[in-house]
Computed example of a mutant assay.
Amino acid sequence: MNKTKFFYSFFSGYEPRAKTTTNSSEWESHVLPHSPIEELAPNIWHVTGIFPNEPVAPREMIIYKLPDSSLLIHSAICLDEPTIQQLESLGDPKIMIIPNPIHRLDAKVYKQRYPDLIVVTPAVVKPYAEQIVNVEEIAEQFLPQYGITCHQPAGINPQELAYELPLPTGKALIFTDILFNLTDEYLTKYVPKNKYILSWLGAAGFFGITFLGKSFFMNDRKAYRQWLEKLADTVQPLQIISVAHGEPITNNCQQKLREAAARLL
């Protein structure tokens, strides 16, 4: 087993649950604390999910309005009833991306709630996702029809893609675990008790690939750095950067990508 598969095998069994009563639905058992839905730019929103009393980073869900006004959900997080109703008011959930082998925690119950939801994964992720839910489409083949560009990271063991989403006012890049942005403000707001352990793990205080990412995901430091630099040069105008763990970036996005690349020099 290579080191990336070992990492995902170790973390794939992590399944925290909410405190529920005997009358609770399976959806309710997946609803953990989370932020409100917050707009990042026209047609794109995010939600921050928190694992209470767990020494792990918060997670991010992206909600994106497709050209037909339906919704794409990246890295799904179960929401309380008022918030899921707010999500539905934005559009009909149509596509759910399971972005890598461990960001699948709530995928099954999303499919149960929305039976017509199209479950999409990168090709390499399909065997992992299908341990819990049927995968209907492969991201690289299916998403371009919606104007979405799927970028295969260079210098990273195959595990996930980066998604370039067109916006009315620019572009968004959606990453999962190959970049973090756990700023001090973000950690203080959501998980103040975990700030120091996350810093000790080399995951906090900067935008870039973490110590664990370098150890388990990266196979060519130079190639990964050059890939980030290429994104900064070619994805323009870049208005939003989202990562699965950390504060979304809404200013100086191209410069932030170059800074993440420079950390690999």
Score class of each variant (00 low, 15 high):
residue 1 M to D: 11
residue 1 M to P: 09
residue 5 K to T: 10
residue 7 F to G: 00
residue 8 Y to R: 09
residue 9 S to N: 13
residue 10 F to H: 12
residue 18 A to Q: 06
residue 21 T to P: 09
residue 21 T to R: 10
residue 22 T to Y: 09
residue 25 S to V: 06
residue 30 H to I: 14
residue 34 H to L: 05
residue 38 E to V: 14
residue 40 L to F: 03
residue 42 P to T: 15
residue 48 T to S: 13
residue 51 F to H: 14
residue 52 P to C: 05
residue 60 E to W: 07
residue 63 I to K: 04
residue 71 L to K: 09
residue 73 I to T: 08
residue 74 H to Q: 08
residue 75 S to I: 08
residue 78 C to F: 00
residue 82 P to W: 10
residue 83 T to F: 14
residue 84 I to P: 03
residue 84 I to K: 11
residue 86 Q to A: 14
residue 93 P to R: 06
residue 95 I to T: 08
residue 97 I to P: 03
residue 99 P to F: 09
residue 99 P to A: 08
residue 105 L to N: 01
residue 114 Y to K: 07
residue 119 V to Q: 01
residue 120 V to K: 00
residue 130 E to R: 06
residue 134 N to P: 00
residue 135 V to D: 01
residue 136 E to H: 04
residue 139 A to G: 07
residue 140 E to H: 07
residue 143 L to G: 00
residue 144 P to D: 14
residue 145 Q to C: 03
residue 148 I to K: 07
residue 149 T to N: 10
residue 152 Q to S: 15
residue 154 A to M: 14
residue 155 G to M: 15
residue 156 I to R: 02
residue 157 N to D: 13
residue 158 P to G: 00
residue 158 P to S: 00
residue 163 Y to C: 04
residue 164 E to V: 03
residue 169 T to M: 13
residue 172 A to P: 04
residue 179 L to E: 09
residue 180 F to L: 12
residue 186 Y to P: 02
residue 188 T to E: 15
residue 195 K to Y: 02
residue 196 Y to P: 02
residue 197 I to D: 05
residue 199 S to L: 13
residue 200 W to P: 06
residue 201 L to G: 01
residue 203 A to V: 08
residue 206 F to C: 08
residue 207 F to T: 11
residue 207 F to D: 09
residue 209 I to W: 09
residue 209 I to M: 13
residue 210 T to D: 06
residue 217 F to L: 14
residue 217 F to V: 05
residue 218 M to C: 12
residue 223 A to G: 03
residue 223 A to T: 03
residue 230 K to I: 07
residue 231 L to C: 11
residue 233 D to K: 11
residue 234 T to V: 13
residue 235 V to A: 02
residue 240 I to V: 15
residue 241 I to C: 10
residue 241 I to W: 07
residue 243 V to I: 13
residue 244 A to N: 11
residue 245 H to F: 03
residue 246 G to S: 08
residue 246 G to N: 05
residue 247 E to N: 09
residue 252 N to S: 15
residue 253 C to Q: 07
residue 255 Q to Y: 15
residue 256 K to M: 13
residue 257 L to D: 06
residue 262 A to C: 11
residue 263 R to K: 09
residue 264 L to Y: 03
residue 265 L to G: 14
